[in-house]
Every structure is written in C-alpha cells, then in structure tokens.
C-alpha cells in the first residue's frame, strides 16, 4: 500500500501580540491509499487546526503535509472537505444541484459530465429528489448529506471530514455514519474523519489516531480489526468493539490528564 497522506513533523504556533499558543506540537503519521482513518482527541486538541493544515487552508509553522507525494502549499487538487457547520458551508443562494455543480465547474468539467456527477452523487446520499430545493429548506441531516454529495461528486482522492455529525441528532447521526461508511466501501476514497466521539471513531475507521491535548502529538495509533461489514447494533456490542473503545478511551483520558502516552506509542 502506498501512502496517500503523509504528515511529517507538523507544528503550528499561533502568534498574536504578546501571546504564543502552540496548537500542534509535533504530529507525524501517514495514511495509506484507500484507508479510512479517524482522528480523535480531547476538545481543544487542535483537531481543526490539523485538518486545516491538511486541507491547505492554513500554513503550518514547521513540518510538511504531502498528498500523494506532492507537498501541500494551498488547497490541493483532488481533495474535498466536509465541514461541521453544514449550514454555513452550503451556499444558501444556490440550489442543492448548483451547490454540488459549482466546484465541478471550477474543475472545468464538461456540462454533461457535471450533470451526471451531480445526479449520481445526490442519488448516492438518498436525496435524488431534493436537487431543486435550497439547502435551507432541508433538515440539518439532509443538509449534511448535500455537503457529502458535493464532496463525492468532486471525485476527490482524499476526503477530509471535520466533526461532520457533531451538530445533528443521534438518529440522523447513526444514519449518516452508515452512509459515509458505505460510500467509502463503494468508492474507496482515502478518508480522514476528525471527531471527538470515541464510539464514532471506532465504528467508522479502519484505524484510529488518538491525539494528545495541546500542544498536540499522536498518542496512539489503533488498528480497528472489526469486520468490514458493520452494523450499528451488532458491531457496537461485540467484545472487540468494547476493547478497542476502552483502549481509545483510556488514551483520551490520559491525554486530558496531561500524561504522555506510554504503552501505546510503539
């Protein structure tokens, strides 16, 4: 397996007048092509900062990010980001179809190709009939589906998701988790999923990276050996799930208490 996302010695310091905040201490990891990796950490761990550095929206202070071998200096081609704030990420002055179409037009795809991608992606997220609505006419869960449709229509090599389901209700959240998981299985897009929810991370990922509290580094790198076919009820009640969950949970607790990872970092 080749590396799709490579992060080496990433460090980010926010400097303002008289204050110097080290958000990210030193992060190094790599995600293989087609892998689904979850990044989990306590709140304030600089998860969003890390994601912005990966997305090329924020320049790191030191270290580097490579996507498919190419260093990231700005938003890289072949990357789509799904933000937590779906309501603010979708363009309210555009219809659902136009929202999905707009990034494709930036890629200068021919019209019929764009229409095909928009229609297919809407069908893939179960919103085939909502294309002509405005996003604000839809429920929160549906809006996030539109954002996901927009991301997959873009045909990215890498999909970044920043706590995408933190603002939806529990039932919708379970549905969206299964949607993302099934899209990943059918499309094979390398996916980095940032969350603060341990259960979500273990349920979704093939791998979970546990971040420490700020200044952030990688505490633990847990391979999730659950079967590829996962189910909200049965998968979550297996002893393997419980063991993985406990391991990640302990890592987070240690991170909150300010202890450095000991046993796990091998």
């Amino acid at each position: 397996m080749t590396e799709m996302v490579t992060v080496k010695g990433l460090n980010k310091v926010y400097e303002s007048t008289g204050r110097r905040v080290e958000a990210i201490g030193d992060i190094t990891f790599a995600v293989a092509r087609g892998e689904f990796a979850c990044i989990v950490g306590p709140s304030g761990a600089g998860k969003t900062t890390l994601l912005k550095c990966l997305a090329g929206l924020l320049a790191p202070t030191a270290g580097e990010v490579r996507i498919d071998g190419t260093p990231v200096t700005g938003p890289p081609p072949g990357m789509a980001v799904v933000f937590q704030e779906y309501g603010r990420s979708l363009f309210p002055w555009k219809t659902v179809r136009q929202n999905i179409d707009l990034p494709l037009r930036q890629k200068k795809l021919p019209r019929d190709r764009r229409e095909k991608l928009v229609t297919e992606s809407l069908a893939a997220v179960g919103l085939a009939d909502a294309g002509d609505s405005y996003s604000w006419q839809l429920s929160g869960g549906m809006q996030q589906r539109v954002a996901i449709a927009r991301a997959i229509a873009y045909e990215p090599q890498v999909l970044l998701m920043d706590e995408p389901f933190a603002a939806v209700d529990a039932q919708t959240r379970a549905d969206l988790e299964d949607l993302v998981r099934s899209l990943w299985r059918s499309l094979g897009i390398t996916t980095l999923f940032v969350t603060h929810d341990i259960d979500e991370a273990v349920y979704l990922g093939e791998r979970v990276l546990v971040l420490s509290a700020s200044p952030t580094h990688v505490l633990d790198d847990v391979r999730i050996g659950l079967p590829a076919d996962r189910d909200q009820v049965t998968s979550r009640s297996t002893p393997e799930f419980a063991a993985l969950r406990a391991r990640v949970h302990r890592g987070i607790q240690d991170a909150k208490a300010g202890r450095r990872g000991t046993g796990a970092a091998a």
């Binding site: 789509a80 980001v81 933000f83 990420s89 363009f91 555009k94 707009l102 990034p103 930036q106 873009y154």
Partner: peptide, 19 residues
C-alpha cells in the same frame, strides 16, 4: 466557513468574488 469551502474547492479569485 463558506469562504473556506470555496477555497478548499479551489475557486479562483473571480469565482470567490462572484459566488
């Protein structure tokens, strides 16, 4: 967030201003 969305989808300056 809207602006970051446009940036991440590599909207050029013209498209960012326009859309």
């Amino acid at each position: 967030v809207t602006y970051d969305t446009a940036r991440s989808y590599r909207f050029g300056l013209r498209a960012r201003v326009l859309h």
